[in-house]
Every structure is written in C-alpha cells, then in structure tokens.
Design a protein around this nucleic acid. Sequence first.
RNA 1: CGGGGUGUAGCUCAGCCUGGCAGAGCGCUGCGUUUGGGACGCAGAAGCCCUCGGUUCAAAUCCGAGCACCCCGACCA
Length: 575
Amino acid sequence: MRMSNQFGRTLRQAPADAETISHQLLVRAGFIDQLSAGIYSYLPLGLRVKKNIESIIRKEMDAANGLEVLLPTLQPADIWETSERLFTMQDVLFKLEDKRGRTMVLGPTHEEVITTLFSKFANSYRDLPKILYQIQTKLRDETRPRGGLVRVREFTMKDAYSFDLDEKGLDISYTSMVDAYHKIFSACEIPIISVEADSGAIGGKGSQEFIFLTDNGEDTVLICNQCNYAANQEKAEFIRSEKISTQPLNIEKIETPETTTIDQLTNFLKIHKNDTAKAVLYMAIPRNEDKPFPIFAVIRGDLEINEVKLMNLIDARELTPMTDEHLSQYDVIPGYASPIGISSEIRVIADISITETENLVAGANEVGYHFINTNYSRDWTATDIADIATADEGYICAKCIGEEKGNLRSARGIEMGHVFRLGKTYTSYFDTTVLDQFGKQSTPIMGCYGIGIDRILSATVEEHHDKNGIIWPEKLSPYNIHLTALNFNQDSAVAEKATNLYKRIQAEGLSVLFDDREENPGVKFKDADLIGIPIRITVSSRNNADNVIELKLRHSETSEKIRDENIIQVLQQFF
RNA sequence: CGGGGUGUAGCUCAGCCUGGCAGAGCGCUGCGUUUGGGACGCAGAAGCCCUCGGUUCAAAUCCGAGCACCCCGACCA
C-alpha cells in the first residue's frame, strides 16, 4: 500500500471525547472513526487489523472442529417471542417493522436463530456433537455506550454454539472452546484471566469470562491471592468476617434521633458497622412480567447488597430503589426501616451475614427509634436467607482449602470473551430433539461462546503502546513491514530503490505500507511510530551512500544498518 | 434512567461574564525554501457559532425549550 494513495489521516491531537489510550491512538492513527455514540467506521488500516483478528479466531475455531456459518442480522420477532426474550431483553433489542407491519429484530445475539437452524438439519444423535460459529455484526441498544470500542451499539462478535447429547458431551465441547480461547488471546498477545461469571439474561448454569485487566475496564473482578479462585464481582463469593460470638441480649427500643444512615447510626451509638443490620428496599420486576413486587433486603451494615445475586435469587430482571410513594404504600419509614413488624406483602431476603451475627442494631420502623440487640429467628425471620452480598477488596476467599484462607484482591477489567453452559433452555423453547441411539427423543444440550472482536482491537492497543503510538503484535499488525523512503520526491535514487524494494517485499508474500509521500522525515517517522507496524525499514540518501537500508523494530530504541543485498533475507527471518 | 460536563473551521480550542466585522494553532490548497524525529516563509480556501423559539435597533454572546456528544452511576448477552 502506497501511503500517497491511502485513505485516512493521522491526527496530531486526539478528539476531546476520546478518553482511553486505545481510543485516542486508534483515532489518531487513522484506524477508526466515530459516526455516533457507540457506532464506528473502520478505516482501511483498522479493517486490516480486524481481519487479522478474525483469521486468528477462524483458525482456532476450525481447529476445534467448529463449522462456520453466517446467520441473519434481521430476524423475525416471533422467534424472540418463542424464547421469551422479546420481553426479557426488550431494553437492548433494536426493533423495527417491515412493510406488512411484521415486527423484526436486529440481532443482538443469535441463540434463537441458531437453534431454529439446528432443529431443521439435526435429526439423530449421529448429527452430534456440533459446534457452529459465525463472525457477525451484533446490534444492541445500549443505554450507555462508552470507552471507544469497549461498549458500542454495533459491533462484531464471534459467537459459537455447541450441541451435545449430554452433559459429558457438553464438557468436551466447552473445554475445547476454552482451550481455543486461550490460544486466540495468546496469539493476540492479550493477557487474560478467566473468572467465574454470572450468566445474565442468556440463562444457563455455569459461565466463565475472559477478562483483560485494565483500570479502564467496566467490570470488577476479585482474585484470590492464595488459591486460583477468580470471579466477577457480580458472582464472587466470600466468607463473612467472623464476629466474636456473644450471648443474645434482650431486645430494646432506644431513641436515635437524626440517624437515617449507617454512618450516623454508628457514630451516634459508638458502635461498628458490623453491629448493625442495614435495610435496602427495592421494587423488583419479575423476569417474565411487568408487575413489580416489593423486596426488603437485609444485610449486615458493613456489607453491600449484590443486586445481581439478589435478582438471580428472586428471578427478577430489574431492581429499582423504592420511591417515597412505595415506601408509604408499604408503611416503611425511610432511614428507620425494620424487618421487625414489616408488612407481610413484602418479601424479606436476609443475607447470611445476618443470621451469623448476634445483637444487631436495626430500625424500629418509627422515626427516631432503633432496636438494639435484635437476633435473627428470635425477633424476626426472612422469606429467604441467601448470599446477597458484594465481595470486595480484602475479603476472605470462600474457595481456599485448609486453615489459612487467602484474601481477595479487586481489579478492573474488560470482558473479552464469555463462555456459557447454556443447557437445554433454547433447545426446549424451540422443541429441538434428536433421536438417541435407543430411538428415543432427546433434547440436545447447548453451550455458547462469544468473543468481542472490536474489544480485542482495543485491548491490544491498551496493552501494546508507548508514548509515540501503537506497537502491534506481529499477527495483528495491519502490514508486515513499514517502508519509509526519505526524500522520495527529490532523490531519484531513493525513489527507485524504495520502489524496487516495495515490489520485492510484496513478491515475497509480505505486506508493506510504503511511505512514498512528500513529507519531512520527522513527519514520516512520527506517523510510523503512531501506526505501529512492528518492523520499519528506511531508504534514504544517507543510507544509499553506504549501500545500506536501515531496519528498526518498533519496540526497540535502536536501529541497525543492513547491506542492500541482504535486506530481503533479513526480513524473511522475522516471518 | 439519575448526576455532571460540552456543543464555534476537518482536529484542538479562544471569544460568551460585560450583546456591536467570526478568531488562533494544527490540518488542507498553491508557490518557494528546507530534508534523519510533526521545519520555515508568502499567498489562499474553509463556518447553519448544535436546532427552534424569545428578548433587543442588534444575539456565537442574554432567556426558554429541544437535540447531540462525553464522563460517573444504574443497566449490560
């Protein structure tokens, strides 16, 4: 590619709204351009990197016996009705109507389509196992796109779906995908940790996320400093810090004016947060209905409610804090809410921390009063007792074996990939069955496996850059070689030699970005650094006088001179 | 959806407070000089000052409404 013929330009300054390094560099180097919130165009350079990522993924998917398909983006809404996700995923679905007034959906993901397709062609256990995958555009009406390519409304995803006869088969498919993922991320040179994850709206039993750790990430993960436990904060388990066990004392109502928060309460009574019971009131919207119901969550005062755990427990798709109208409707006194004497209309959920701690201070459901020495089961009970607490930095690992337990460390990261054991959710919805070897109908069990391609692009830049620009890993680089010709328009010897070299390198099967522009050397070097191709060679009048070509690796400070006749051979050694 | 911020040339931004000719740097075009880390000179092109409405003799500037974009949170396959 001759740069004189390139489309797109490098920028000295990044646009003001690019916050993260990867966003800034990708825009400055002319790889992507923003059209609207969460909607980007790929320029020629960016598209070449994207294609490289896709081919790495294809290679590993094919090696894992995946079969590539391409499923439609435009989908009739009725298959989404069948899976009930027209309802449960309504917030992210782009919907439209065709001429006949039929509702259509722009695919945010493809479980419905793949299951429909699979049902048509698979009849027998002999058709199993199968792993089908595609690399496709996904459309999701995100409430808040952010971070350049990190959270967008239109993006490219590799999604794979496995179909097996039983759990054992699923294990094999799942493991082969996990292995493939590790190979993919390693080829892209992105450090990844895999963590236990919540499966969210997609459903299913177990899932694992592949997280790229970065302070710009939007997910929080907790990692044990002793065992190999790591989990998304939405899912992470921990052991409640122990409190010295005491005998239950008599419950007593005391005056506590102006103490509507845990902080005020602990200051006023000169006690610790873990001596209190905190009440959090929500209206929950059930997964498959619109009618909200009230929830009273109780947790020890030093802990925070984990809304994901809570929603999973009560099978809700949304939690919103109770408004003043709701509070008065259920006779709850804000700031003094109490599980003791609560309206029976409200479902009470207690975190396990509550039942393990004696003599807690709780609200009295009366302005200006709290109860001291409340004890679970003696003074009140909950509808459910469960783990609904958020794990955080320094908490005790729940998975360590033995006496010495590790502590959890908290880190931010970006979800690059997610694998799910889906189970029979979709095959059941779509009545997908095959005959097993005994001639009986059997419902296949599914797994699904996603990787965000645009996110790999972003993460790679986050991981591989310096103050001058991007430093692409060899396999992702838009071109193999960056050929810089200084004085291209003034020195015909340079022009001739560089042009010849350009052709010879291509004849070797390598791709070259050829800077034949009429620009000062400084501009060419700055652009080369910004664009980040790992190998740069320079032809110049100065080098010509010595019959050498200069070779510099992007990640290195120094360069070396290669004799003209050796340059091709030297370049070949890199590939 | 809640909170905060920003909309002026392709990009970064000044001008707005205190109403009176539409500005700078970078980029772009032409000519010339320069040529190993974003070089210099001269001459140019480039604007719906986000939109609509209001106040005013006069609005980029003041007032109102709306829209867009960014950040934090909520949400998130």
